[in-house]
């Protein structure tokens, strides 16, 4: 499993216009590296959901993406309010999104379940008032 490259992006808080820029850039890179389309789609969806959560809920953060020959590891770290009950947050339909966020089309409570669904390995750690970290791994041969 030799590493091809690492990319790092700063994701701003509450910047909905730019939200998804990091995911879009990673998608372009994976395309240029000729990964299978299904793999690229899974990585894009998982990273976008995580990136949007950092923008909406996490007060912004950092996305670090490690691209290997046969997988991609996406690490999303924020220093936001944290998640008090991860099990509850992981449930389909659970959302604390405000009405103004819902008007933008977010808040279905499907983001974290989607990340789990698209990934081969998904670790989420969070501490209230400290922040949240997601480590998402997607294999290109699964």
């Amino acid at each position: 499993m030799s590493q091809v490259l690492t990319q790092k992006y700063v994701v701003g808080a509450d910047d909905f216009a730019a939200a998804g820029a990091a995911s879009a850039a990673v998608k372009k890179t994976l395309k240029q590296l000729n990964f299978p389309v299904d793999f690229i789609r899974r990585a894009s969806i998982a990273m976008y959901e995580g990136e949007i959560n950092m923008v909406i809920h996490g007060g912004g953060g950092v996305a670090s993406v490690e691209i290997y020959e046969d997988c991609v590891k996406i690490i999303l770290t924020d220093k936001g309010p944290g998640i008090p009950d991860i099990e509850q947050a992981m449930q389909e339909g659970y959302s604390t999104a405000t009405d103004s966020i819902r008007e933008l089309g977010f808040g279905a409570g499907m983001g974290l379940p989607n990340i789990k669904k698209q990934s081969d390995d998904f670790e989420i750690t969070s501490e209230v008032d400290k922040g949240t970290t997601l480590i998402i791994t997607i294999n290109s041969n699964s």
């Binding site: 909905f16 216009a17 939200a19 998804g20 879009a24 998608k27 789609r41 894009s44 933008l104 089309g105």
Partner: peptide
């Protein structure tokens, strides 16, 4: 009927 910039991003991410 979602016409925000996020609509474009979602469409692109999901092929």
């Amino acid at each position: 009927v979602q016409t925000s910039l996020n609509m474009v991003a979602v469409a692109v991410m999901a092929d």
